[in-house]
């Protein structure tokens, strides 16, 4: 029951936090910014509309939003929010989660190519390239975590006798991992140094340009999927830096969402003070994240 509630809460609250990013950015720019609930309003607005489809598209184009959203929801099913047991957990489920997210990406890319637009092809090519590198980096994180406590499951990482946490015995290594994971979060969710969600020049976009032709409820599904994906990565990092769990589940949940709020604010700050990287520097950026984690793994050879 607790698991169902925490999963439902995550589904419900995930669209709130991107509003936090917008608010932070607005505050940095000295503006008042949109209301915190802006993303909910956007979703409702989109859901009430109809759609215009390009004559070039086929059923694949309509399948894209469905699969990417379903994959993101599936990822949340495995996640132990605020320490409560997730709905599904087994040894090896992380591999499943990242491959499901990969499936979502596959269909987003294919849907983009379905429009016959050169811009969307450009975005698709970039997405395919960068996410491959990011995936390799993520699997190195999994290797490190397996070295640390022998688990291969999201739930087991953060529970049991040796939970992986910054306050554990290997905090210094985790610092590297957290930095790297944050870089991966920015990459995988098309945030600033890699992709600029607020720009209006299609040539420089990655994710936004791929969904140019979607509209109405389809676009709402994509947006929702993107919120869930971002929330998944943020929760991953939040579990690493969260202080030890409190006895009271309500307080624990509040603490967890507090940390997540903080993370989204950091994303907002990063977006305000950094410029987008030149496209050909992005691989180096992701490789740096990869190097950080790989390096942490090599250190476990000696320290563990």
């Amino acid at each position: 029951m607790e698991s169902v509630v925490s999963f439902g809460l995550a589904l419900l609250l995930a669209p709130l936090f991107p509003g936090v990013i917008l608010k932070t950015k607005a505050l940095f720019a000295g503006k008042q910014g949109p209301p915190l609930l802006i993303k909910y309003f956007t979703l409702i607005k989109l859901l009430r509309k109809g759609s215009v489809y390009s004559a070039s598209t086929t059923f694949v184009f309509r399948l894209g939003p469905l699969i990417s959203c379903a994959a993101a929801i599936m990822a949340l099913l495995f996640f132990p929010f605020a320490g409560t047991a997730p709905l599904i957990a087994f040894h090896g489920d992380v591999i499943m989660v990242f491959y499901l997210l990969g499936l979502g990406r596959f269909f987003t890319i294919v849907a983009a190519l379905d429009t016959a637009s050169p811009f969307e092809g450009m975005g698709a090519a970039r997405e395919a390239f960068f996410s491959t590198l990011a995936e390799a980096a993520i699997f190195v994180v999994l290797i490190l975590f397996f070295r640390m406590n022998g688990a291969l499951s999201l739930a087991a990482y953060f529970s049991g006798s040796q939970p992986i946490s910054i306050i554990g015995s290997q905090g210094a290594l985790l610092l590297l991992v957290i930095v790297a994971l944050f870089m991966i979060l920015l990459t995988e969710n098309s945030r600033v140094p890699v992709d600029d969600p607020a720009t209006h020049l299609e040539l420089t976009m990655i994710h936004e340009v791929m969904i140019l032709d979607h509209s109405g409820p389809d676009l709402a599904l994509i947006e929702l999927g993107a919120f869930y994906k971002l929330f998944f990565y943020a929760s991953f990092i939040a579990c690493l830096i969260k202080p030890p769990p409190l006895a009271d589940p309500v307080a624990n949940t509040l603490l967890f969402y507090g940390v997540i709020m903080l993370l989204y604010m950091v994303v907002g700050v990063v977006e305000s003070i950094m410029a987008r990287l030149k496209m050909d520097l992005v691989p180096k950026y992701i490789l740096t994240a990869f190097a950080l984690v790989f390096f942490a793994v090599i250190l476990t050879l000696e320290i563990v």
């Binding site: 691989p283 180096k284 490789l287 740096t288 190097a291 790989f294 390096f295 090599i298």
Partner: peptide, 13 residues
């Protein structure tokens, strides 16, 4: 730079 980073990792190993 990419190759250099990988060389760096190789050096650590």
């Amino acid at each position: 730079y990419h190759a250099s980073l990988l060389v760096g990792l190789g050096l650590v190993m």
